[in-house]
Simulated scan of single mutants.
Amino acid sequence: MWPWGHLAVGYLCYSLWCRYRNRPPSALGAVTVAVGTQFPDLIDKPLAWTFALLPTGRSLTHSVFTAGLLLAALWVGARRYDKRLPLGAFAIGYLSHLAMDTVKPVMNGNFGDTSFLLWPVLSQPAYSTPKSFLAHFAEFEPTPFVLLQFALAGVALVVWILDGAPGFDEVRHLWPTTSRERVGER
């Protein structure tokens, strides 16, 4: 799945979770779910494709073992230091990423291609695309699955706007908007 598909599914799940808990999506939660939806690829793909430290772009952080250990450690750390962190939002983003990476193999009946979820216990599936970012973008095709991801991104964008665009102002303020602000004049 492409980054926008992961982001769309993660945000839609987060928005539904907030509605279930009768509270609006928060800015910090929206940003955190966005990070969670990209987290596995931000770790695995560079470590596999750029540095050759992992066997594939779906291994270490795409494993349910790593996900379980990391989420448990974050939960324990937050409880121990009495910090209220948006761990639920991160977990929704992270776990939705893992789930969505299994959709295409399952739809195609290639259940063995979901073995990355149990890495390192199970061996990795063979991938036909070379291990590089450029190779993946070069093989980009507007397949029905890719078009579905664009549609989901559109739906998620509408839901995010209806939710009040949580996180937009916080992220927007990270970048200067005028030439005076860029040179430090405020």
Rank of each mutant, 00 (worst) to 15 (best):
H6M: 07
L7H: 06
D44S: 08
L74I: 00
H173D: 12
D113N: 13
Q149E: 14
L87K: 04
K83V: 14
H173G: 11
R21M: 07
V155A: 10
V103F: 09
R84W: 09
L162V: 15
I92K: 10
R79Y: 12
L74M: 11
T66F: 15
Y11W: 11
D169R: 15
V146A: 13
I92A: 08
G154L: 05
P3E: 04
P176D: 03
S132H: 00
S15H: 02
W4Q: 14
Y127E: 09
Y94P: 06
R180C: 03
A91T: 09
P3L: 06
A73E: 01
T143H: 11
R84L: 12
H6W: 05
F39G: 04
R180V: 08
V64F: 15
F133R: 05
A138I: 08
G88T: 12
V106N: 11
A27I: 01
A8P: 00
A72Q: 10
Y127V: 06
L16T: 13
L7R: 04
F116Y: 14
W49N: 13
W17M: 15
P24C: 04
L7G: 00
R79W: 13
T177C: 12
H62M: 02
F133W: 13
A99P: 04
V76G: 08
L16Q: 14
P86S: 07
F111V: 14
Y127C: 00
V64A: 14
L69Y: 12
A153V: 01
L152T: 00
V106F: 09
R182Q: 10
L16E: 14
Y20E: 04
A138E: 12
L122E: 09
D44P: 03
A27E: 07
V183F: 10
G184T: 06
L95K: 03
G109Y: 01
G112R: 15
K83H: 12
K83E: 11
A126K: 11
L174H: 05
A78D: 07
R172E: 10
T32P: 02
V159H: 12
R21H: 12
V171G: 07
L12G: 09
R182D: 09
V183N: 04
V121R: 10
L70D: 03
T143S: 15
T50N: 11
L69D: 12
T143N: 09
E185R: 14
H62F: 00
D41K: 05
L157N: 05
P144R: 06
A151T: 13
E170W: 10
L47Y: 08
A48C: 03
P144N: 09
V155Q: 01
P105L: 02
T56H: 11
V106H: 06
A78K: 05
R182F: 10
M1Q: 05
G5H: 00
S115D: 10
L87C: 02
A52E: 14
Y94Q: 10
P120F: 02
G167D: 06
L174M: 15
P125D: 02
K45N: 04
L98W: 01
F51C: 09
F145P: 08
Y20C: 08
D113C: 07
G77S: 06
P55F: 00
S179E: 13
M1Y: 08
A151R: 01
V183L: 11
S115V: 06
T178M: 03
